[in-house]
Simulated assay, not measured.
Amino acid sequence: MANQEGAYSPSMADRFGRRIEYLRISVTDRCDLRCRYCMAEKMTFLPRDQILTLEEIAVIADRFIARGVRKIRLSGGEPLVRRDFGELARRIGRHVKAGTLEELTLTTNGTQLAEHAEMLVQAGMKRINVSLDTLDPDLFTRITRRGDINKVLEGIRAATSVGLKVKINMVALKGLNDHEFLPMLRWCNAQGHDLTLIETMPLGIIDEDRTDRYLPLKMAVDQIKAEHEVTPIAYRTGGPSRYFAVEGINARLGLITPLSDNFCAGCNRMRLTCEGRIYMCLGHEDHVDLKAAFRAGGASAIDALLDKALRLKPLAHDFAIGADARPATVSRHMSVTGG
């Protein structure tokens, strides 16, 4: 990377020597659920004219790939509620088929998955993440405020039937689903899915106190260890999850622990929001505005801002939770930045 202001090189390494090879793109902040730990019940979403067009997202993705990004994950909000999502996935997926992108993946809540599973495969996807915090239908509706678990389960079956590898993401919520970690792992094992547990993160103002719901994942693992030996393994997918083998179970167990066990030293990611902002860290407000640069100066304006983003990428996030923490470390909701 250049050492003087204004100049740039094509490398994607930050000032701490971390190579940025993974881009997460939020294609919309809209969602058809209102999960309690993620959103307020009454949300105000961005006006559509502030959202990046399909063409703008595709061109920005092209520039990241040209600079060395090897993996792209599409997320939201719920990405499958965006009408032109299929066209966007196919546009980026061309890089996978050409060998210039190693992997294109998706994070979804699963409600629209049955309709779109075949399209994802045609776009070049081989695996996806599905958010599912409980197997109890009534609790699912309570957590999501409106969801029907049967639609999600139907979507997961459809994805599996067309050859997509499904990983389940489960946010650990004290007092809600904290009795379901081992049952969920066993269900995943029976269905052929891996499971990742995630600590709730202080993003955006919601209707509840996150301190009441925060559960360090050590407590979840202790529940599993009471019946199975749990052993760290070297398996990685490019994201922040650390994986474990569980004795007697084929499903891999992943842990994402932003609060109890910081993983920032190995961060290889940036995030593009649906309104065209690059956030160098999920837990900071610092960003660069690619939409404004692209609309003013075209694709050539993107590279200089990417170098600025690399210089500004912090060493670690500022996530905190508890009595002395602010209500939310950052004001934007997870649906804006993307999961």
Rank of each mutant, 00 (worst) to 15 (best):
R70G: 10
K218G: 12
N3L: 11
L306N: 09
I233L: 09
M170V: 02
L33Q: 11
T200Q: 06
K97R: 01
M43Y: 11
R326E: 08
R269D: 04
R18A: 09
R90M: 06
V230P: 06
A234D: 07
K42W: 02
Q122W: 03
R210Q: 09
R83F: 04
C264N: 09
N189S: 15
V152M: 13
V221A: 14
L259D: 02
Y8I: 09
R145P: 10
I198S: 07
S75P: 05
E41V: 02
V171D: 13
E247Y: 00
V171E: 08
L306Y: 03
N189P: 03
I60S: 06
T100C: 00
M280E: 09
C267R: 10
L305E: 04
D303F: 01
A172E: 14
G297T: 11
K308S: 15
D209P: 10
Q223N: 10
P314C: 12
L101A: 04
L101K: 06
E78N: 14
R146W: 09
R90K: 15
P47F: 06
A320D: 08
Q191C: 11
L195E: 10
D324A: 14
L259G: 02
N189C: 09
R30M: 00
L33I: 11
C35W: 02
V69S: 01
R277P: 00
D222R: 11
D29M: 10
C188S: 12
D289T: 08
P232D: 04
Y243M: 12
N169A: 12
R277C: 02
L46Q: 11
P314K: 15
L310I: 03
A40E: 06
P327I: 15
C264S: 13
I168F: 10
H317T: 05
L215K: 07
E247H: 14
K174E: 14
E103M: 07
I128Q: 04
D14F: 02
D49M: 01
L106Y: 03
R157W: 03
L290Y: 04
A123I: 00
T100K: 07
P314L: 09
T231E: 06
D84G: 10
L217N: 04
I256G: 01
L33V: 01
C38W: 00
Y214A: 00
G110A: 13
Q122C: 07
S241H: 00
N169M: 04
P258H: 12
V330M: 12
C35K: 08
P240I: 04
T160G: 15
L52V: 11
A234K: 08
K165Y: 00
A299L: 09
N109D: 15
T107W: 01
G238A: 00
G6H: 15
M280L: 00
I128E: 01
R83I: 07
I149Q: 13
P137M: 09
L80R: 01
D148R: 07
P137N: 14
D62G: 00
E275N: 15
I60C: 06
L139R: 15
L305N: 08
N150A: 13
S11R: 05
I206E: 05
K151C: 08
G254M: 07
F263V: 05
L253Y: 07
I256F: 00
V230G: 03
G155P: 08
F45V: 06
R73K: 09
G155W: 05
R94G: 03
K174F: 02
